[in-house]
Design a protein around this nucleic acid. Structure first.
Length: 278
DNA sequence: ACCCAGGAAATTC
DNA sequence: GAATTTCATGGG
C-alpha cells in the first residue's frame, strides 16, 4: 500500500475491498455526506476530509501522510484482509455468501467510541435519516468549530455539563436524558470505554449497559463500530427479520469470530431487499 | 388518521 | 419473570 503526499491531499494506491457508499452509508456512521461525484465528505477524530475512490486508488483531501498513519489507515480498517474473511465466512451459509458478494466493499470502520455510543443511543426506535439530522444538530450546537461551519463531534465532558432541556434543539425526544446519562458516566469514568476494548465480551456489554438507555443492541453496536469488537452481532429489526426468513434456527453465536462483519453484510443486504420480508 | 423506525424503560400481568 | 405499553419525533 503506497502513500503519496501532495499539497492538500494524499493518494493511497492498492486499496481493495472498499466501496465508500457501501461502507459510509450502511448505517454504522451518521456523519458522511455523499457528493455528486461519488466522493464523501465528513468529520472524524476532529478532522474534516473528503474521500474519493478511483479504482483501487483512495484519495483523501485535506489530509497529510501523518494523518493517514495516525487516523485514516485505522479508521478505514485497512490493515484487515476482508477478502480473506469473506472466503472464510461464506462457508457458513449460502445466504451469507450471497450477502457478502452483494456488497464486498463494506468495511467495519474504527470510529471514536464515545461518538458511536452516543449516536447509537440516538438510533433507538428511530430511522437513519432522522438519526443523521439529530447527530448533525448535536455537533452544530455543542461541538467545536474546527473549520468554518464544520463541527467536531462534542466531547462527553461537554455534554455532561448540560441538562436535557439544553438538548431540546436536537428534537431527539425521550433520548435526551439517555444522551446526558451516557456523557456523565463516560466523563466521570464510571463507564470506562477503553476497558471495553479488551474486557471479556459479556463484561464489556455490562459496562456499557450501566448507562440508562443502553441495552443489548446499543451495547453491541458500540462494541462493533466503536471498539472494533468484530465478534459482536447486533440484532435490530432488520436482523431479526433476516434471521427468521433467511437463517432460521441460527443465532449470532453461529456466525463465528467475524460475526460482526457477517452481520453488516446481512444488514445491508436485507435493507436493500425489503421485498424479501413482505 | 395510521404505521414504522439499527430499542429500552416502565408498567402490567 | 415474561409479556405489553410507553416514550418523542418525523416520514410515508
Amino acid at each position: 500500500m503506497k502513500v503519496e503526499e501532495k499539497s492538500n491531499y494524499i493518494k493511497i494506491c492498492g486499496v481493495s475491498d472498499l466501496d465508500l457508499a457501501q461502507t459510509l452509508d450502511c448505517g454504522q456512521s451518521f456523519r458522511w455526506v455523499e457528493q455528486d461525484d461519488g466522493s464523501f465528505t465528513g468529520v472524524a477524530f476532529r478532522k474534516y476530509v473528503t474521500v474519493k475512490l478511483c479504482g483501487s486508488d483512495l484519495y483523501i483531501y485535506n489530509a497529510t501522510k501523518d494523518d493517514f498513519k495516525n487516523i485514516w489507515f485505522n479508521y478505514f480498517d485497512l490493515g484487515l484482509d476482508y477478502g480473506k474473511i469473506r472466503e472464510e465466512i461464506r462457508k457458513l451459509h449460502p445466504f451469507l455468501n450471497e450477502a457478502a458478494k452483494y456488497a464486498p466493499g463494506i468495511r467495519i470502520l474504527r470510529q471514536e467510541p464515545y461518538e458511536v455510543l452516543c449516536t447509537f443511543i440516538i438510533s433507538q426506535n428511530n430511522n437513519i435519516k432522522r438519526i443523521k439530522g439529530i447527530v448533525q444538530r448535536l455537533c452544530e450546537n455543542f461541538g467545536d468549530e474546527i473549520e468554518e461551519n464544520i463541527f467536531a463531534f462534542p466531547t462527553a465532558e461537554k455534554i455532561a455539563e448540560l441538562t436535557d432541556n439544553d438538548l431540546a434543539p436536537l428534537r431527539a425526544g425521550f433520548r435526551n436524558r439517555y444522551i446526558i446519562d451516557a456523557a456523565r458516566k463516560v466523563a466521570s469514568g464510571e463507564v470506562d470505554l477503553e476497558k471495553c476494548r479488551i474486557a471479556d465480551y459479556e463484561k464489556a456489554r455490562k459496562e456499557l449497559m450501566k448507562i440508562t438507555g443502553v441495552g443489548v443492541k446499543v451495547a453491541d453496536c458500540t462494541l462493533l463500530f466503536g471498539m472494533h469488537r468484530i465478534e459482536a452481532f447486533p440484532i435490530d429489526v432488520w436482523m431479526k427479520r433476516a434471521l427468521e426468513k433467511l437463517f432460521p434456527g441460527m443465532s449470532g453465536d453461529d456466525f463465528g469470530e467475524y460475526a460482526g462483519i457477517a452481520q453488516q453484510y446481512i444488514f445491508h443486504f436485507s435493507r436493500m431487499h425489503p421485498e424479501l420480508f413482505e
